[in-house]
C-alpha cells in the first residue's frame, strides 16, 4: 500500500527538533512576562485588525505589531505539521492504522478539552485557551502517535 500524502522520513529529525524548541520558546513567550519585552516591532499587513490592542480598526491596511509571536507560531505550526505527518522509517499499513487511530483519538480528546474550557473559563484567561487551541490538536496527536509508535517498536524487541 502506497501513501503519498506524507512528508519524507529525512525531514523527521530536523522538524522534530525545531518543533520542540520553537514551541518551548512560544510557551515561554506567552507565560513569562519578561519575555514579552523582546519586541520586534514591524508594520504588518492586516486583512482586518486594530492598531494596537484597542485602537482604530480597519480592512486591508498596515498595523504596528510585535511580530515575535507570529514568527514563532509560523515555525511551530509548519514544523509541527511536517513532524506529525512524516513517513516512519518502515512505513507499512499497520503504522498507517496506528496513525489514523491516534488522529481520531487526538481530535476527540482535543475537542473535549476545548469544550470543557469553553464552558468553565471566562473573561481574559479564555484568550490563553484560544492561543493554545491554535496548536493543541497537533500537539496531542504528536504525543499520542509517538507514544503508540514507541509501544509498537518495543512490542517485538525480541524474536519469538
Amino acid at each position: 500500500m502506497k501513501t503519498n500524502y506524507l512528508f519524507p522520513n529525512r525531514l523527521k529529525f530536523i522538524s522534530g527538533v525545531l518543533f520542540v524548541t520553537s514551541s518551548l520558546m512560544l510557551t515561554l513567550y506567552y507565560s513569562v512576562s519578561q519575555f514579552g519585552q523582546f519586541e520586534f516591532k514591524a508594520k504588518v499587513f492586516a486583512i482586518y485588525g486594530n492598531d494596537g490592542f484597542l485602537g482604530e480598526s480597519g480592512w486591508f491596511w498596515g498595523v504596528d505589531n510585535s511580530i515575535l509571536d507570529e514568527i514563532l507560531m509560523s515555525i511551530v505550526i509548519t514544523t509541527g505539521v511536517v513532524f506529525a505527518f512524516c513517513k516512519e522509517k518502515h512505513e507499512d499499513e499497520l503504522v498507517a492504522s496506528i496513525r489514523l487511530r491516534s488522529l481520531a483519538w487526538a481530535t476527540i480528546l482535543n475537542y473535549s478539552i476545548l469544550l470543557f474550557c469553553y464552558l468553565f473559563i471566562y473573561g481574559m484567561p479564555f484568550l490563553n485557551v484560544l492561543n493554545v487551541a491554535m496548536f493543541s490538536q497537533l500537539l496531542i496527536f504528536i504525543l499520542l502517535f509517538r507514544y503508540k509508535m514507541y509501544r509498537f517498536y518495543k512490542s517485538a524487541a525480541y524474536e519469538e
Partner: peptide, 15 residues
C-alpha cells in the same frame, strides 16, 4: 515489505 513488528502483531492476532 512490512516491518517485523507488523509480522509480530499478525502472528499474535492483534492486527
Amino acid at each position: 515489505g512490512v516491518s517485523r513488528q507488523t509480522i509480530n502483531a499478525l502472528e499474535a492476532g492483534k492486527y
